[in-house]
Amino acid sequence: MLLKGVMSMPTIKDVAKKANVSVATVSRVINNTGYVQVETRQMVLDAITELGYIPNELARSLFKKQSKIIGLIVPHLSTIFFAELLESLEDHLARHGYKLMIFNAKDDIERENKIMHVFNQYNIDGIILVAHTKQTKNYADLHIPLITIDHKMNEETPSITSDNQQGGRLAAEKLIASGCKKVLHLQGPSFLLTVLNRNKGFNETIEKAGIALHTIDLAFVSPDYRLIEQFIRSHPDADGIFCSTDILALHALRALHKMQRAVPDAVAVIGYDNVELCELVTPNLTTIDQPIELIAEAAVASLLALIDKKTPEPLHKVMPVKLIERESTKKS
Protein backbone atom coordinates (compact mmCIF):
# COMPACT_ATOMS: atom_id res chain seq x y z
CA MET A 1 0.00 0.00 0.00
CA LEU A 2 1.39 3.39 -1.03
CA LEU A 3 1.40 6.37 1.28
CA LYS A 4 -0.77 9.26 0.20
CA GLY A 5 1.11 11.63 -2.06
CA VAL A 6 3.89 9.13 -2.83
CA MET A 7 3.98 8.09 -6.49
CA SER A 8 5.03 4.58 -7.48
CA MET A 9 7.88 4.05 -9.90
CA PRO A 10 6.73 3.18 -13.43
CA THR A 11 7.14 -0.49 -14.36
CA ILE A 12 7.85 -2.29 -17.61
CA LYS A 13 4.11 -3.07 -17.76
CA ASP A 14 3.32 0.66 -17.64
CA VAL A 15 5.68 1.25 -20.57
CA ALA A 16 4.06 -1.58 -22.55
CA LYS A 17 0.59 -0.16 -21.89
CA LYS A 18 1.66 3.36 -22.83
CA ALA A 19 3.27 2.21 -26.11
CA ASN A 20 0.44 -0.25 -26.79
CA VAL A 21 2.86 -3.17 -27.18
CA SER A 22 3.66 -6.35 -25.26
CA VAL A 23 6.03 -6.52 -22.28
CA ALA A 24 8.24 -8.82 -24.38
CA THR A 25 8.60 -6.10 -27.01
CA VAL A 26 9.62 -3.54 -24.38
CA SER A 27 12.16 -6.03 -23.04
CA ARG A 28 13.65 -6.52 -26.52
CA VAL A 29 14.02 -2.75 -26.93
CA ILE A 30 15.61 -2.27 -23.51
CA ASN A 31 18.05 -5.15 -23.94
CA ASN A 32 18.60 -4.52 -27.64
CA THR A 33 17.78 -8.14 -28.51
CA GLY A 34 15.60 -9.57 -31.23
CA TYR A 35 13.89 -7.70 -34.05
CA VAL A 36 11.63 -4.71 -33.39
CA GLN A 37 10.28 -2.45 -36.16
CA VAL A 38 11.80 1.03 -36.20
CA GLU A 39 8.46 2.74 -35.56
CA THR A 40 7.60 0.38 -32.70
CA ARG A 41 11.05 0.83 -31.13
CA GLN A 42 10.59 4.62 -31.21
CA MET A 43 7.16 4.32 -29.58
CA VAL A 44 8.68 2.30 -26.75
CA LEU A 45 11.58 4.75 -26.29
CA ASP A 46 9.13 7.67 -26.23
CA ALA A 47 7.03 5.89 -23.57
CA ILE A 48 10.15 5.22 -21.47
CA THR A 49 11.11 8.89 -21.64
CA GLU A 50 7.63 10.19 -20.91
CA LEU A 51 7.09 7.89 -17.93
CA GLY A 52 10.64 8.25 -16.59
CA TYR A 53 11.03 4.49 -16.51
CA ILE A 54 14.36 3.17 -15.15
CA PRO A 55 15.16 -0.46 -16.07
CA ASN A 56 16.02 -2.84 -13.25
CA GLU A 57 19.75 -3.37 -13.77
CA LEU A 58 19.87 -6.55 -11.70
CA ALA A 59 17.04 -8.10 -13.67
CA ARG A 60 18.72 -7.09 -16.93
CA SER A 61 22.01 -8.60 -15.80
CA LEU A 62 20.32 -11.93 -15.07
CA PHE A 63 18.65 -11.85 -18.50
CA LYS A 64 21.84 -10.91 -20.38
CA LYS A 65 24.14 -12.93 -18.08
CA GLN A 66 26.29 -9.82 -17.80
CA SER A 67 26.07 -7.25 -15.00
CA LYS A 68 28.88 -4.86 -16.04
CA ILE A 69 29.87 -4.95 -12.35
CA ILE A 70 33.36 -5.78 -11.10
CA GLY A 71 33.90 -6.87 -7.50
CA LEU A 72 36.94 -5.42 -5.74
CA ILE A 73 38.22 -6.88 -2.47
CA VAL A 74 40.76 -4.85 -0.51
CA PRO A 75 42.35 -5.82 2.82
CA HIS A 76 41.59 -2.43 4.37
CA LEU A 77 39.93 0.80 3.24
CA SER A 78 41.71 3.04 5.73
CA THR A 79 45.12 3.00 4.00
CA ILE A 80 45.90 5.85 1.62
CA PHE A 81 47.61 3.63 -0.96
CA PHE A 82 44.52 1.42 -1.39
CA ALA A 83 42.26 4.50 -1.56
CA GLU A 84 44.34 5.92 -4.43
CA LEU A 85 44.44 2.53 -6.17
CA LEU A 86 40.67 2.18 -5.82
CA GLU A 87 40.08 5.56 -7.47
CA SER A 88 42.33 4.68 -10.41
CA LEU A 89 40.65 1.30 -10.89
CA GLU A 90 37.21 2.89 -10.87
CA ASP A 91 38.28 5.45 -13.48
CA HIS A 92 39.70 2.83 -15.84
CA LEU A 93 36.71 0.50 -15.45
CA ALA A 94 34.24 3.34 -16.06
CA ARG A 95 35.89 4.01 -19.43
CA HIS A 96 34.85 0.49 -20.42
CA GLY A 97 31.32 0.82 -19.06
CA TYR A 98 31.86 -1.12 -15.83
CA LYS A 99 30.86 -0.25 -12.28
CA LEU A 100 32.86 -1.17 -9.18
CA MET A 101 31.43 -2.96 -6.14
CA ILE A 102 33.87 -2.56 -3.24
CA PHE A 103 34.36 -4.96 -0.33
CA ASN A 104 36.60 -4.60 2.72
CA ALA A 105 37.90 -8.03 3.77
CA LYS A 106 39.74 -6.82 6.91
CA ASP A 107 41.82 -10.03 6.83
CA ASP A 108 38.70 -11.87 8.08
CA ILE A 109 37.87 -15.27 6.54
CA GLU A 110 34.19 -15.11 7.54
CA ARG A 111 33.82 -11.69 5.87
CA GLU A 112 35.53 -13.10 2.79
CA ASN A 113 33.09 -16.02 2.61
CA LYS A 114 30.13 -13.62 2.79
CA ILE A 115 31.67 -11.51 0.03
CA MET A 116 31.98 -14.54 -2.24
CA HIS A 117 28.30 -15.30 -1.61
CA VAL A 118 27.39 -11.77 -2.73
CA PHE A 119 29.38 -12.24 -5.93
CA ASN A 120 27.10 -15.12 -6.90
CA GLN A 121 23.97 -13.18 -5.94
CA TYR A 122 24.80 -10.16 -8.09
CA ASN A 123 26.09 -11.98 -11.16
CA ILE A 124 29.49 -10.24 -10.92
CA ASP A 125 31.40 -10.18 -14.23
CA GLY A 126 34.88 -10.23 -12.71
CA ILE A 127 36.89 -9.98 -9.50
CA ILE A 128 39.93 -7.88 -8.59
CA LEU A 129 41.51 -9.33 -5.47
CA VAL A 130 43.90 -7.00 -3.63
CA ALA A 131 43.48 -8.70 -0.26
CA HIS A 132 45.78 -11.63 0.46
CA THR A 133 43.80 -14.87 0.79
CA LYS A 134 44.21 -18.52 1.73
CA GLN A 135 40.95 -19.48 0.00
CA THR A 136 42.32 -20.07 -3.48
CA LYS A 137 40.04 -23.07 -4.16
CA ASN A 138 36.89 -21.23 -3.05
CA TYR A 139 37.60 -18.43 -5.52
CA ALA A 140 38.28 -20.93 -8.29
CA ASP A 141 34.93 -22.61 -7.54
CA LEU A 142 33.12 -19.34 -8.27
CA HIS A 143 34.08 -19.68 -11.96
CA ILE A 144 34.29 -15.89 -12.22
CA PRO A 145 37.21 -14.21 -14.05
CA LEU A 146 39.70 -13.11 -11.36
CA ILE A 147 43.00 -11.25 -11.19
CA THR A 148 45.14 -10.26 -8.21
CA ILE A 149 46.93 -6.99 -7.45
CA ASP A 150 49.90 -6.58 -5.10
CA HIS A 151 50.44 -10.33 -4.74
CA LYS A 152 50.60 -13.53 -6.74
CA MET A 153 47.97 -16.08 -5.67
CA ASN A 154 49.22 -18.95 -7.85
CA GLU A 155 50.79 -19.60 -11.24
CA GLU A 156 47.40 -19.88 -13.02
CA THR A 157 45.75 -16.65 -11.79
CA PRO A 158 46.82 -13.43 -13.58
CA SER A 159 48.54 -10.92 -11.31
CA ILE A 160 49.75 -7.33 -11.32
CA THR A 161 52.52 -6.53 -8.88
CA SER A 162 55.19 -3.88 -8.53
CA ASP A 163 58.87 -4.82 -8.27
CA ASN A 164 59.11 -4.79 -4.48
CA GLN A 165 62.60 -6.27 -4.34
CA GLN A 166 63.86 -3.53 -6.63
CA GLY A 167 62.10 -0.96 -4.44
CA GLY A 168 63.95 -2.25 -1.39
CA ARG A 169 67.26 -2.14 -3.27
CA LEU A 170 66.69 1.45 -4.43
CA ALA A 171 65.97 2.59 -0.86
CA ALA A 172 69.11 0.86 0.44
CA GLU A 173 71.28 2.28 -2.32
CA LYS A 174 70.05 5.79 -1.54
CA LEU A 175 70.87 5.46 2.17
CA ILE A 176 74.31 4.06 1.31
CA ALA A 177 74.94 6.95 -1.10
CA SER A 178 73.89 9.35 1.68
CA GLY A 179 76.70 8.00 3.85
CA CYS A 180 74.53 6.22 6.42
CA LYS A 181 76.41 3.92 8.83
CA LYS A 182 73.56 2.64 11.05
CA VAL A 183 70.13 2.04 9.56
CA LEU A 184 66.71 1.36 11.09
CA HIS A 185 64.06 -0.55 9.18
CA LEU A 186 60.40 0.02 10.10
CA GLN A 187 58.48 -2.72 8.31
CA GLY A 188 54.84 -3.73 8.05
CA PRO A 189 53.91 -7.24 9.19
CA SER A 190 56.55 -9.58 7.84
CA PHE A 191 54.01 -12.27 6.85
CA LEU A 192 52.89 -10.14 3.88
CA LEU A 193 54.57 -11.14 0.62
CA THR A 194 55.02 -7.52 -0.46
CA VAL A 195 56.83 -6.74 2.79
CA LEU A 196 58.99 -9.87 2.49
CA ASN A 197 60.07 -8.90 -1.02
CA ARG A 198 60.88 -5.31 -0.01
CA ASN A 199 62.83 -6.65 2.95
CA LYS A 200 64.79 -9.03 0.75
CA GLY A 201 65.94 -6.30 -1.64
CA PHE A 202 66.69 -3.85 1.18
CA ASN A 203 68.37 -6.19 3.67
CA GLU A 204 70.62 -7.89 1.12
CA THR A 205 71.89 -4.54 -0.20
CA ILE A 206 72.47 -3.05 3.26
CA GLU A 207 74.22 -6.16 4.60
CA LYS A 208 76.41 -6.40 1.49
CA ALA A 209 77.58 -2.84 2.22
CA GLY A 210 78.48 -3.86 5.78
CA ILE A 211 76.06 -1.38 7.36
CA ALA A 212 74.51 -2.07 10.78
CA LEU A 213 70.77 -2.81 10.47
CA HIS A 214 68.05 -2.95 13.14
CA THR A 215 64.45 -3.90 12.30
CA ILE A 216 61.05 -3.64 13.98
CA ASP A 217 57.82 -5.36 12.84
CA LEU A 218 54.73 -3.13 13.01
CA ALA A 219 51.01 -3.36 12.26
CA PHE A 220 49.88 -2.72 8.68
CA VAL A 221 46.90 -0.61 9.77
CA SER A 222 47.17 1.93 12.61
CA PRO A 223 50.77 1.21 13.64
CA ASP A 224 51.53 2.08 17.27
CA TYR A 225 53.33 5.45 17.30
CA ARG A 226 54.65 4.84 20.80
CA LEU A 227 56.49 1.71 19.65
CA ILE A 228 57.98 3.64 16.73
CA GLU A 229 59.22 6.48 18.94
CA GLN A 230 60.60 4.05 21.52
CA PHE A 231 62.44 2.09 18.81
CA ILE A 232 64.02 5.20 17.31
CA ARG A 233 64.99 6.53 20.75
CA SER A 234 66.68 3.22 21.55
CA HIS A 235 69.06 3.83 18.62
CA PRO A 236 70.25 7.43 19.11
CA ASP A 237 73.17 6.98 16.72
CA ALA A 238 71.06 5.77 13.76
CA ASP A 239 71.49 8.01 10.72
CA GLY A 240 69.12 6.36 8.23
CA ILE A 241 65.55 5.01 8.36
CA PHE A 242 63.68 2.99 5.73
CA CYS A 243 59.95 2.42 6.18
CA SER A 244 57.92 -0.13 4.22
CA THR A 245 55.04 2.38 3.86
CA ASP A 246 54.80 6.17 3.71
CA ILE A 247 52.55 6.17 6.77
CA LEU A 248 55.30 4.53 8.83
CA ALA A 249 57.72 7.12 7.47
CA LEU A 250 55.42 9.97 8.54
CA HIS A 251 55.35 8.51 12.05
CA ALA A 252 59.16 8.36 11.98
CA LEU A 253 59.36 12.03 10.93
CA ARG A 254 57.08 12.96 13.81
CA ALA A 255 59.25 11.07 16.31
CA LEU A 256 62.46 12.61 14.96
CA HIS A 257 60.95 16.10 15.16
CA LYS A 258 59.94 15.45 18.75
CA MET A 259 63.50 14.29 19.50
CA GLN A 260 64.91 17.40 17.75
CA ARG A 261 66.90 15.28 15.31
CA ALA A 262 67.27 17.13 12.03
CA VAL A 263 66.11 15.47 8.80
CA PRO A 264 68.06 14.88 6.59
CA ASP A 265 71.22 16.34 8.22
CA ALA A 266 71.20 13.94 11.19
CA VAL A 267 68.88 11.22 9.89
CA ALA A 268 67.78 10.36 6.35
CA VAL A 269 64.23 8.96 5.98
CA ILE A 270 62.74 7.01 3.05
CA GLY A 271 59.14 5.80 2.72
CA TYR A 272 57.35 3.52 0.26
CA ASP A 273 54.29 4.08 -2.01
CA ASN A 274 54.55 7.80 -2.91
CA VAL A 275 51.08 8.76 -1.65
CA GLU A 276 49.99 12.40 -1.95
CA LEU A 277 50.81 13.16 1.70
CA CYS A 278 54.54 12.82 0.91
CA GLU A 279 54.58 16.32 -0.59
CA LEU A 280 52.42 17.89 2.13
CA VAL A 281 54.75 17.27 5.07
CA THR A 282 57.91 19.16 6.03
CA PRO A 283 60.42 17.99 5.06
CA ASN A 284 58.89 16.45 1.92
CA LEU A 285 59.33 12.69 2.03
CA THR A 286 61.72 10.78 -0.21
CA THR A 287 59.95 7.56 -1.18
CA ILE A 288 59.68 4.63 -3.56
CA ASP A 289 57.00 5.29 -6.16
CA GLN A 290 54.56 2.54 -7.09
CA PRO A 291 52.94 3.46 -10.44
CA ILE A 292 49.30 3.30 -9.28
CA GLU A 293 47.88 4.47 -12.63
CA LEU A 294 49.86 1.87 -14.58
CA ILE A 295 48.93 -0.86 -12.09
CA ALA A 296 45.22 -0.01 -12.42
CA GLU A 297 45.41 0.20 -16.21
CA ALA A 298 47.19 -3.16 -16.49
CA ALA A 299 44.79 -4.79 -14.02
CA VAL A 300 41.71 -3.68 -15.94
CA ALA A 301 43.23 -4.78 -19.26
CA SER A 302 44.02 -8.25 -17.86
CA LEU A 303 40.56 -8.67 -16.31
CA LEU A 304 38.74 -7.57 -19.48
CA ALA A 305 40.82 -10.09 -21.46
CA LEU A 306 39.66 -12.85 -19.09
CA ILE A 307 36.04 -11.72 -19.39
CA ASP A 308 36.44 -11.99 -23.18
CA LYS A 309 37.77 -15.55 -22.61
CA LYS A 310 41.30 -14.56 -23.63
CA THR A 311 44.58 -15.15 -21.77
CA PRO A 312 46.31 -11.94 -20.66
CA GLU A 313 49.83 -11.50 -22.00
CA PRO A 314 51.94 -11.73 -19.97
CA LEU A 315 49.98 -13.62 -17.33
CA HIS A 316 51.98 -12.02 -14.49
CA LYS A 317 52.93 -8.37 -14.93
CA VAL A 318 55.63 -6.82 -12.72
CA MET A 319 55.55 -3.02 -12.81
CA PRO A 320 58.75 -1.00 -12.35
CA VAL A 321 59.24 1.25 -9.31
CA LYS A 322 61.45 4.30 -8.91
CA LEU A 323 63.02 6.43 -6.20
CA ILE A 324 61.48 9.89 -5.75
CA GLU A 325 64.08 12.10 -4.09
CA ARG A 326 62.75 14.88 -1.87
CA GLU A 327 63.84 16.76 1.23
CA SER A 328 64.08 13.90 3.74
CA THR A 329 67.32 12.64 2.19
CA LYS A 330 70.48 14.46 1.11
CA LYS A 331 71.09 15.07 -2.58
CA SER A 332 73.30 12.39 -4.08
Rank of each mutant, 00 (worst) to 15 (best):
G271Q: 10
H214C: 14
A268I: 01
L304F: 11
D265G: 00
P236H: 13
S302L: 01
K309Q: 13
L253R: 14
P283L: 00
N284P: 06
A298N: 13
A298T: 15
A301P: 05
A219F: 05
A301I: 08
D217W: 01
P264N: 09
E293S: 07
E313G: 00
V318H: 12
D217L: 02
C243H: 03
K317E: 10
Y272S: 08
T286R: 08
A301G: 06
I216T: 14
M259D: 10
L304W: 13
T205G: 02
A268P: 01
Q230T: 15
A212S: 13
E297N: 12
H214S: 15
L306R: 11
R226I: 06
I228Y: 11
V300H: 10
S234C: 03
V269D: 14
E293C: 00
I295G: 12
I232H: 09
P236G: 13
V263T: 09
P264C: 06
A238E: 07
A252M: 07
T245P: 00
I247W: 09
I307F: 08
L303F: 08
Y225M: 04
R226H: 13
Q230A: 13
A252L: 06
I211C: 02
A266T: 10
A238M: 08
G210R: 09
I247C: 03
K317N: 04
I288Q: 05
D246G: 05
D237I: 00
K309V: 03
I247V: 11
A255Q: 07
D273T: 06
T215S: 14
E279H: 03
L285D: 13
R261C: 07
A252W: 04
L227Q: 14
P264A: 08
A266W: 00
H214L: 09
A262G: 02
A238K: 07
V318Q: 15
F202M: 02
L213K: 08
A299W: 02
N274T: 06
H257E: 10
A255Y: 03
E279L: 01
E297H: 15
D237P: 05
H251C: 05
F242D: 08
P291I: 01
T311R: 10
E207S: 07
I247D: 15
E204Y: 06
T282C: 03
E207R: 11
Q260L: 01
G240C: 09
D308T: 00
L277D: 12
L303P: 07
E313W: 02
